[in-house]
């Protein structure tokens, strides 16, 4: 009895430093956002007052919010499957014994190491009409110049492309590690059985990669709602909100308009959204995942 008591004490003691930071920088801000979201924004001449769910009603009636939300869904749809697909492809490729393997691995991983702000500035020039890289290539095959970031139809896809390019290399690392962990015995057995490369991937490698896929998927979903750096550099949400994502909109409301209460309500909405996504993934998908 006495021993378990002191064990618990030591346990809590060991957890305390990490907990302190978590509470100060994660839990408390989340709770503070919830509290702030039911008050009005304090102004110099109008102190803050309790407004109940007014800020949430404002969310429902806010067209820019809905556009950011839809944009964000498209952004997720555009980035998650594409970057996971590319990551698996690249991982399989550099997992084989090919000449220049180390170089290929490094090349694929490079985008992840570069700071997003620098990357976005480089892509800004890729997308520049007329003399940008993309248009120069298009010019070679006789296509007219396109204003990639300045046209409502292409702007969102342009920023999705940057995100996929940035993310795929990062996810590749996880897949590569998982592939290295698959026992070579399985590959030998499969080749003895005469299984084709595709069957081996579909029946053996892919199922064994499922835990990694789940992990990557969760990260990809979070990232789809978390990436704003390149939006700030490349489009500032424009043209006419065509590339405004949720977090970028929250930043705008919070730090450009200083409507902190409304920004808090938007933050709570996003927290709930992400918590929901994580719950689905851990609760439902995880049961379908095969841990070897």
């Amino acid at each position: 009895m006495k021993k378990s008591h002191s064990d618990a004490l030591i346990g809590w003691g060991l957890m305390a430093p990490a907990m302190l930071f978590l509470i100060a920088f994660t839990h408390w801000p989340a709770i503070a956002s919830i509290i702030e979201s039911v008050y009005s924004t304090p102004r110099a001449r109008r102190p803050s007052s309790f407004v109940g769910l007014d800020n949430y009603e404002q969310i429902l009636a806010d067209p820019v919010f809905w556009q950011s939300f839809t944009n964000n869904l498209w952004f997720a749809v555009g980035t998650i499957p594409a970057s996971i697909f590319l990551a698996i492809l690249m991982a399989l490729w550099v997992n084989d014994r090919i000449p220049g393997r180390t170089f290929a691995r490094m090349a694929y991983f490079t985008p992840t190491v570069l700071p997003m702000i620098a990357v976005a500035n480089i892509w800004l020039f890729f997308f520049t009409p007329q003399y940008g890289l993309l248009d120069q290539v298009m010019g070679l095959i006789g296509r007219p110049a396109t204003n990639w970031l300045g046209t409502k139809d292409t702007a969102l896809w342009a920023v999705i492309m940057v995100a996929v390019w940035k993310e795929a290399g990062f996810f590749m690392i996880f897949y590569l590690a998982a592939l290295q962990g698959i026992s070579p015995v399985l590959a030998e057995a499969a080749s003895l059985e005469g299984a084709s490369r595709w069957t081996f991937f579909r029946r053996v490698q892919f199922p064994l990669l499922m835990p990694t896929t789940l992990f990557v998927l969760i990260n990809a979903v979070i990232n789809a709602f978390r990436m704003v750096d390149h939006i700030i550099v490349m489009t500032r949400g424009g043209p006419d909100n065509a590339t405004s994502l949720l977090l970028f909109y929250i930043y705008q409301v919070g730090f450009n308009f200083w409507d902190t209460a409304y920004a808090a309500a938007l933050t709570v909405f996003m927290l709930v959204l992400l918590a929901g996504a994580a719950a689905i993934q851990y609760g439902w998908l995880e049961r379908k995942v095969h841990y070897s």
Binding site: P129, Y131, N147, G150, G238
Partner: peptide, 19 residues
């Protein structure tokens, strides 16, 4: 004039590049 939205930041460069 180029159609659509024209970037503020690259406008001087467009000028230098004779675009």
């Amino acid at each position: 004039h180029a159609p659509g939205i024209v970037e503020w930041g690259t406008t001087p460069k467009d000028f230098f590049e004779r675009k």
